[in-house]
């Protein structure tokens, strides 16, 4: 039962999920402004994609399919909530494209930051996201001020290395499949 085929597929779905889940949530959340419902919608889109369209392997095509499924489910959700008229007035093609663009940019930056090693990430978060000074960070994390400085430099260095085109990730995925 535990065939090699289902195993590699599962692995492939997980990679897609890791890459796209949060940005799709953000996209849905922008449309319906309800984070719990947004998560439900995105989860259902992943399940549906996998059951019906797993034959599509081109990453941009998969992404677009998921965005479209999520968008349609969001519009349905709003219809259910009977606020569709209100939304329809603001919903234009331009707004939709803006929502995709935002989800893509923030999603990619989040992924880059989240994949930093833990020590680095904490320093980066406190300094760049929460605006603490070096000494405050040192006190907060109970480390020396010099460690804070090195971790900051390292975070920026790593961030550059990690923002590779997603195509690279998918390439790795396709190569690694051979070993399952």
């Amino acid at each position: 039962m535990h065939t090699g085929d289902s195993h590699h597929s599962n692995h492939q779905l997980k990679s897609l999920f890791d890459l796209l889940y949060l940005r799709l949530c953000r996209f849905a959340d922008q449309i319906i402004t309800d984070s719990a419902a947004a998560e439900d919608i995105v989860q259902e889109a992943f399940i549906k994609y996998w059951q019906r369209h797993a034959d599509i392997t081109d990453l941009p095509a998969i992404k677009t399919l998921l965005y479209v499924m999520v968008r349609n489910a969001c519009l349905n959700h709003l219809k259910h909530q009977k606020v569709v008229e209100k939304f329809a007035q603001t919903q234009t093609e331009v707004a939709e494209e803006a929502a995709v663009l935002k989800a893509e940019v923030w999603g990619e930056l989040y992924r880059a930051i989240a994949s930093l090693p833990e020590g680095c990430r904490n320093v980066f978060k406190l300094s760049y996201l929460e605006g603490l000074k070096n000494q405050e960070i040192a006190d907060e994390l109970k480390i020396s001020i010099n460690t804070v400085k090195t971790q900051k430099a390292r975070a920026l260095e790593l961030l550059k290395l990690r923002l590779k085109p997603e195509a690279f990730l998918v390439l790795c995925l396709l190569v690694s499949e051979k070993y399952f």
Binding site: N10, L13, D18, Q51
Partner: peptide, 30 residues
């Protein structure tokens, strides 16, 4: 999309979802 204030806010927003719980569900259902 190039404002640091927005980066901060968006990173916070993104952090409030529950990917592990979501994956448990998707894995089970699939």
């Amino acid at each position: 999309l190039s404002k640091e204030e927005m980066l901060k806010e968006e990173m916070r927003e993104m952090g409030k979802y529950h990917p592990q719980r979501a994956w448990d569900r998707i894995e089970g259902e699939v």
